[in-house]
Amino acid sequence: MGSKENVIRFRAVSNDGRCSTAWRIWAAAEEKSDVYLLSGPSGGIAKVSLHESGIWRIAYSNPTVAERYLEPGEDRLFDSFPIPLAEVAPGWTEAFTVVLPDSELLGYGPPKKKSPTVDLPSPGKDQAVCVTVLLGKPGSTPYQLTQNQTEVGSFTLPDGRNVHVVSEPTGLPAHYVEAIEQVRKQTCETVLGLGLDLAEQAPSQVLLFGDPDGSRLAVEVSAWTLDGQPR
């Protein structure tokens, strides 16, 4: 794991105390410029890896957990994607986006990690917190926040690139809502079909959207309540 200044933790928090899982972005080691992203409960399942080499991928991070979902010998990798070519500002690329819908927030309680976690206010019903990971080329002009964006954190990689994380409120398109319901249903059916107890499984799941240009977006989904009741 990288040094303390190269770790950013964040979560969405509602006015009534519900929250998302705590997500973490970090640089793996002081001499490398690989960037990783995962959420708390689902971190033992899947991890986003943005390698300095240009190999960007999402894979099951825990072989034991992966065995529950994969056939023997099946690759733990389930998505690889190119670095997006489009720039949102001179020298800056959207590397990955996380959407935390208000509808999916649960009573997880305070983060277990001692490191600071940035609490991002949830904008309310039918909306979400949108968190974007930006990568800036060495020497690029500092990223300027748009009107609705809030700074979450930033750090510089050994190769000179800059990691900048911003958040903003967003609405939920109808196809997101439909996809969330589908994932919720499919996940419950899969887990119960494997003979697992919902109360013992982390309810947080990730719904992925992707475009051929390399852009990737993950939506956090709570497939059941913390006491194991289907939603």
Score class of each variant (00 low, 15 high):
residue 2 G to F: 05
residue 2 G to T: 09
residue 5 E to Q: 14
residue 7 V to I: 15
residue 10 F to E: 01
residue 12 A to G: 03
residue 12 A to W: 03
residue 18 R to D: 02
residue 18 R to V: 05
residue 20 S to E: 06
residue 21 T to F: 07
residue 23 W to K: 08
residue 25 I to E: 03
residue 26 W to F: 15
residue 27 A to I: 10
residue 28 A to R: 13
residue 33 S to P: 01
residue 35 V to C: 00
residue 36 Y to I: 06
residue 38 L to M: 11
residue 38 L to D: 13
residue 38 L to N: 12
residue 40 G to I: 04
residue 43 G to R: 09
residue 43 G to L: 05
residue 44 G to Q: 08
residue 44 G to N: 14
residue 45 I to L: 13
residue 45 I to F: 10
residue 47 K to E: 13
residue 48 V to G: 02
residue 49 S to Q: 12
residue 52 E to C: 10
residue 56 W to E: 07
residue 56 W to R: 11
residue 56 W to C: 05
residue 59 A to Q: 10
residue 65 V to C: 09
residue 65 V to T: 14
residue 70 L to V: 11
residue 70 L to W: 12
residue 73 G to K: 12
residue 73 G to E: 13
residue 75 D to V: 14
residue 77 L to Y: 05
residue 84 P to Q: 11
residue 85 L to A: 15
residue 85 L to H: 08
residue 87 E to T: 13
residue 88 V to S: 04
residue 89 A to I: 06
residue 90 P to K: 04
residue 90 P to L: 10
residue 91 G to T: 10
residue 91 G to K: 07
residue 91 G to S: 06
residue 93 T to D: 01
residue 95 A to W: 02
residue 97 T to C: 06
residue 98 V to W: 00
residue 98 V to D: 00
residue 98 V to P: 01
residue 102 D to V: 00
residue 103 S to F: 00
residue 103 S to K: 02
residue 105 L to H: 03
residue 105 L to N: 00
residue 106 L to G: 08
residue 106 L to E: 15
residue 109 G to H: 13
residue 109 G to C: 14
residue 109 G to K: 13
residue 110 P to Y: 10
residue 111 P to D: 07
residue 111 P to Y: 11
residue 115 S to E: 15
residue 117 T to V: 15
residue 119 D to I: 01
residue 120 L to C: 05
residue 120 L to G: 01
residue 121 P to A: 04
residue 121 P to E: 03
residue 122 S to F: 00
residue 123 P to T: 02
residue 124 G to H: 04
residue 124 G to R: 07
residue 124 G to M: 07
residue 125 K to W: 05
residue 126 D to P: 05
residue 139 G to M: 09
residue 139 G to P: 04
residue 139 G to N: 08
residue 139 G to Q: 11
residue 140 S to W: 08
residue 142 P to Q: 10
residue 142 P to S: 11
residue 143 Y to A: 13
residue 143 Y to L: 09
residue 145 L to P: 07
residue 145 L to I: 14
residue 145 L to Q: 13
residue 147 Q to W: 13
residue 148 N to L: 12
residue 148 N to T: 13
residue 150 T to V: 12
residue 150 T to H: 09
residue 153 G to K: 10
residue 154 S to F: 06
residue 156 T to C: 12
residue 159 D to L: 09
residue 162 N to A: 12
residue 163 V to Y: 03
residue 164 H to Q: 10
residue 167 S to E: 04
residue 169 P to E: 00
residue 170 T to P: 03
residue 170 T to S: 06
residue 170 T to N: 01
residue 171 G to Y: 05
residue 173 P to V: 01
residue 174 A to Q: 08
residue 179 A to W: 01
residue 179 A to G: 08
residue 180 I to E: 02
residue 180 I to Y: 04
residue 183 V to N: 07
residue 184 R to I: 03
residue 185 K to F: 09
residue 193 G to Y: 09
residue 193 G to I: 02
residue 194 L to A: 12
residue 196 L to S: 14
residue 197 D to I: 09
residue 198 L to C: 06
residue 198 L to P: 03
residue 199 A to I: 11
residue 200 E to M: 12
residue 201 Q to D: 10
residue 210 G to I: 06
residue 211 D to K: 15
residue 214 G to K: 13
residue 215 S to T: 12
residue 217 L to G: 02
residue 218 A to W: 01
residue 219 V to T: 05
residue 221 V to G: 03
residue 221 V to I: 14
residue 222 S to A: 15
residue 225 T to I: 02
residue 225 T to A: 05
residue 226 L to Q: 06
residue 229 Q to E: 15
